[in-house]
Design a protein around this nucleic acid. Sequence first.
DNA 1: GGAATAGTGTCTTTCAGACACTATCTG
DNA 2: CAGATAGTGTCTGAAAGACACTATTCC
Lengths: 241, 241
Amino acid sequence: MSISSDLDTYPRPGLTVDLAVLTVVGTSDTTPELRVLVLDRAQPAGRALPGGFIRERQTVARTVDDVLRRKVGIDPADLPRPHLLRLFDDPQRDDRTWAISAAHSVSLREADLAGARGTLVPVTPHGRLGDGPPLLFDHDEIVEAAVSALRERYEIRFRYVDVHPDPDGFLSEPFTLHQLRKVHEAVVGAPLHKDNFNRRMKPLLEPLLRDGRPVLSANLRGRPATLYRHRRDADDSRTTD
Amino acid sequence: MSISSDLDTYPRPGLTVDLAVLTVVGTSDTTPELRVLVLDRAQPAGRALPGGFIRERQTVARTVDDVLRRKVGIDPADLPRPHLLRLFDDPQRDDRTWAISAAHSVSLREADLAGARGTLVPVTPHGRLGDGPPLLFDHDEIVEAAVSALRERYEIRFRYVDVHPDPDGFLSEPFTLHQLRKVHEAVVGAPLHKDNFNRRMKPLLEPLLRDGRPVLSANLRGRPATLYRHRRDADDSRTTD
DNA sequence: GGAATAGTGTCTTTCAGACACTATCTG
DNA sequence: CAGATAGTGTCTGAAAGACACTATTCC
């Protein structure tokens, strides 16, 4: 019928997916650091985030998985789901064609990125790249949006709404309160009070037990710390609805 | 060159914009009510949100404005900006063609909708339509996402982050604390304590003065209330950065 | 013992929640 | 006057911020 053919005659934008892969490296170290994965590319030449066009009758989610597989070289199964940041739709943002980008962000553990292509570049908690020239297209903006959304999850939602000790799961269990705090500090970019931080976190964690005694970490210096994991209890003290 | 032509040979999705226009009707009344604008359409037949395909080299924002002008029949100039909710991209969501929808939401005052086409249908604070059959496509889900984002702005961001008495500006100035509270109640769907509500709001408002005396509302019953407007002061007691 | 880190106790301030009361209008 | 709504005062409990202190490890 005429409507259906009408719909197909209009020019359509290329819909792409660009992905800011965030991670915190050195979580067992003294000063973990927030980083983003960038790829070198030739056409146009420079550094950019991994991305790709959506294929026929694909969903956005599957396209993102495809980018992780083909461009980054890791298996998206069992990884956290990427989520949409916003659309980048300046008609001139890509010289080659009319392309609209659905910018996504995903937070992975350093271990999940073993064997991945690309470079992990340090990012400030304000979302600016620590070193090197700007990224291609509007990808610097995408990094900024990704980090800003990340910070919000850690400093705001964490404190008031959906209280979770490590919303994006940068840490592998088990971990010490010290490690957890250092991850938060890497994300929010400010020192946090040790005792207040621990007091808020403790109710959300449970100590790892062996023979009824808490398992301790092997520290380089100082008193060993208790190892924790997320609470398994179903008791949800603050429900939203 | 070959890359550029490659890009254009792949099939592309039709990118549409669908818009949930939210409003609170009866703000000077005793029980204001949250509503969403729906249009009747013929092809396919039923009720749906206003929407439309993005035209060549257009931005998403301009397309949304276009939808407001052409489908709803109002002038988007000087209105609040719509914002993206998320993408709806089920390949089968539209029988006619492969279409991906960028679902948007905008909050308007009842007065801004004077002369608009369509019907304002009541919505529960959980985002379900008060009456009538389901909307076409996945538009019921879009309404749900719009209302859930709206509630978040009023009950969460309002309380902790970006403290603003009326984030979406449903009320026209000046207004009484009673009116403001009733708008919040219409959005969050629960009664709020009068005194606590007023105590939190007062610092964000300033009374309307005439000859140094506060201007009072003409109530139907009871003691007249002070009329307020948003504070003009630049003093931002809680800054984010 | 000394340095370093883990963990506890407690005081103060802030603020939400709840309740009781007073004030001012209309009919 | 009664009814209705506006507005104030105050108590309580929860939790954040800040500080001081004790505990346990390695060297």
